[in-house]
């Protein structure tokens, strides 16, 4: 009986996926469910909770700081996609090209930043973008006679620092995705194109880019989520969750401020649910737009 069960071809697949299902239920479905529940509650210290209906969501809609956080996160997401898709793709093509020398060196050099901890990197970037005339960036600008800039106190300059950090850190990772995508483009296509007299640029736009589409979709998908859920970078860059005029506040940062710093778990849960809905909507729209849901032919 036991043996028959164990060797059963029908049961085996379920046994294999069981660990994943369990983890998924325990660490995803259950917390999600309880977050949805919490978002309709007012929870105070001492574990007392009361149902308040949509009060948390109503408050969110009129909360200027929350809207600011959403704006910051969305702008950050869009800008990271604008930077972190084309440039890594270009670098991947360059590194993959036949005439590239020291290929492995550049690969690892690009990838290295991803291995450093965000905490360390964020702290270093904070010092680099410091407002004193002795900080790295300002002393560099000083060479051109530019007055010291208070980078981390202004909206635009603050985002420059934030994007510099993101670009430095993630270019290498995205480049690796594209490199592995490039390896799967058969050499024949390029040969055929060469015979037909296609230029390098034409080969890039007509063969490489379309053939990299699945990788691009994947990179965009994870970038949307990573951009909207960004938190530690901002926290480290501003040495805490309270940046001047909230220029670096993100959705997750606001969730953290409400839930952990102000122990208002119910309100924080509603922030989390809004983040989930926004991220999900953007991702699904993007995937539908790029045709990922079409039946395979």
């Amino acid at each position: 009986m036991v043996k028959r069960f164990l060797y059963s071809q029908k049961v085996a697949p379920y046994v294999f996926v069981l660990p994943f299902i369990l983890v998924f239920l325990l660490f995803w479905v259950y917390p999600l469910g309880s977050s949805v529940g919490m978002s309709f509650q007012k929870i105070t210290l001492g574990q007392s909770a009361s149902w308040v209906g949509f009060a948390n969501y109503a408050k969110l809609m009129g909360d200027g700081i929350f809207l600011k956080a959403v704006m910051n996160s969305v702008v950050y997401m869009v800008l990271t996609i604008v930077i972190l898709v084309p440039f890594p793709m270009l670098f991947a093509v360059l590194i993959n090209s036949k005439w590239m020398w020291a290929r492995e060196f550049f690969k690892s050099a690009f990838f290295l930043p991803a291995l450093t901890s965000v905490v360390v990197a964020g702290t270093i970037f904070r010092l680099m973008f410091g407002e004193m005339d002795t900080s790295l960036i300002n002393s560099f600008l000083g060479l051109f006679g530019i007055e010291p800039i208070k980078f981390l106190k202004g909206q635009t300059t603050g985002f420059i620092a934030l994007l510099a950090l993101a670009t430095w850190r993630w270019t290498g990772v995205n480049m690796l995705y594209f490199l592995s995508g490039l390896k799967n483009i058969p050499e024949d296509y390029y040969e055929a194109a060469s015979i037909d007299g296609a230029s390098s640029f034409q080969k890039f736009t007509r063969i490489t880019v379309p053939m990299l589409k699945p990788t691009t979709i994947y990179v965009i998908t994870i970038s949307i989520y990573a951009g909207l859920a960004m938190f530690i970078e901002s926290m480290m860059l501003w040495n805490g969750n309270n940046s001047p005029k909230n220029i670096g506040l993100t959705i997750v940062g606001y969730l953290y401020r409400q839930g952990i710093e102000k122990s208002d778990m119910g309100y924080a849960a509603s922030v989390g649910i809004v983040l989930l809905v926004v991220a999900m909507a953007i991702n699904l729209a993007q995937l539908a737009f790029t045709g990922m849901f079409k039946k395979e032919d």
Binding site: T44, L45, G46, S48, E261, K262, S263
Partner: peptide, 9 residues
């Protein structure tokens, strides 16, 4: 004050 909210623990 955040630690005095509700029933202080």
């Amino acid at each position: 004050p955040d630690f005095l909210k509700g029933t202080p623990q």
